[in-house]
Computed example of a mutant assay.
Amino acid sequence: MSTPEAWEQLRASRWSPPGRADSGSRRNAYAAALEQAEQTFQAAAAVGTATRPIQVFYGLSQAGRAIAAAAVVLKGKRSGTSHPTGSRPPGSTCPSRVSRSAPTRPAPRAAS
């Protein structure tokens, strides 16, 4: 199967999603994540090597969201995290500021 054929089948699955993505918010999440995954992978193919890895990362993240939306059971995981890098466990806190181990130095002045 070619890449365009695979995307065509995936696009078709948006109208009849698998697993638990067959209705409600999971259906919406599945369809949106697949669309965003496809767009992000297309962008990755069109950009230079400096930014391609981040595009692929976000494409994989969206593909994972689609899989999670369709999953019947996700052991020990919440589906639909707010950011592709994950989410904090319930009850955890985020520091209000980042502490530095050493003070920063001013930038050197340019020679005249």
Rank of each mutant, 00 (worst) to 15 (best):
A32H: 08
G86A: 02
P17T: 00
K77N: 02
K77R: 10
P89N: 06
A29S: 13
T85P: 00
P84T: 07
Q39L: 15
S2M: 02
I67K: 07
W15P: 00
R26H: 08
G24M: 07
A107I: 10
A50H: 04
S92C: 07
G86W: 01
A29H: 05
P89H: 11
P89R: 14
T51G: 07
A102I: 04
T85F: 12
E8L: 05
Y58M: 10
A45I: 05
L10A: 00
R26P: 11
Q42V: 13
S23C: 06
W7F: 15
P89A: 13
S101C: 06
G86F: 00
A29K: 11
H83S: 09
G76I: 02
C94Y: 11
R14S: 03
A111V: 03
P106A: 08
E35F: 09
P103A: 08
D22I: 02
R27Y: 05
K75G: 13
V73H: 13
S82Q: 11
R78N: 05
T85Y: 06
L74N: 02
S87Q: 12
A33R: 11
E8Y: 02
A70N: 02
Q55R: 06
P84E: 15
K75F: 15
P84G: 13
S25L: 08
A69M: 04
E38N: 01
Q42I: 09
A44F: 03
V73M: 10
A111R: 09
H83F: 13
A68H: 06
P108H: 01
C94I: 11
Q36V: 03
R14W: 03
R26S: 10
T93M: 14
K75P: 15
I67L: 09
R52D: 04
R11L: 07
Y58R: 09
S92E: 14
R52I: 07
E5Y: 06
T104I: 13
L60D: 04
P4F: 06
R20K: 07
S79H: 00
A66F: 04
T93F: 10
G19C: 01
Y30S: 01
F41S: 02
Q55T: 02
S23T: 11
A31C: 12
V73T: 13
T85G: 11
T40W: 07
A70R: 01
A63Q: 00
P108W: 02
L74M: 05
R11Q: 08
A12I: 02
Q36S: 10
V72L: 12
P108Y: 06
L34Y: 00
M1A: 09
P108L: 02
E35R: 03
G91I: 12
E5R: 12
G64W: 06
A68W: 04
P53A: 15
R109V: 01
E38H: 09
A70S: 13
C94L: 10
R88D: 14
R14I: 04
T81K: 00
A110Q: 08
Q55M: 12
T85Q: 08
T49I: 03
Y58W: 15
S92V: 07
A63K: 04
A31E: 15
P53R: 14
L34A: 02
A21G: 01
A50M: 13
R27A: 11
C94V: 15
T93V: 12
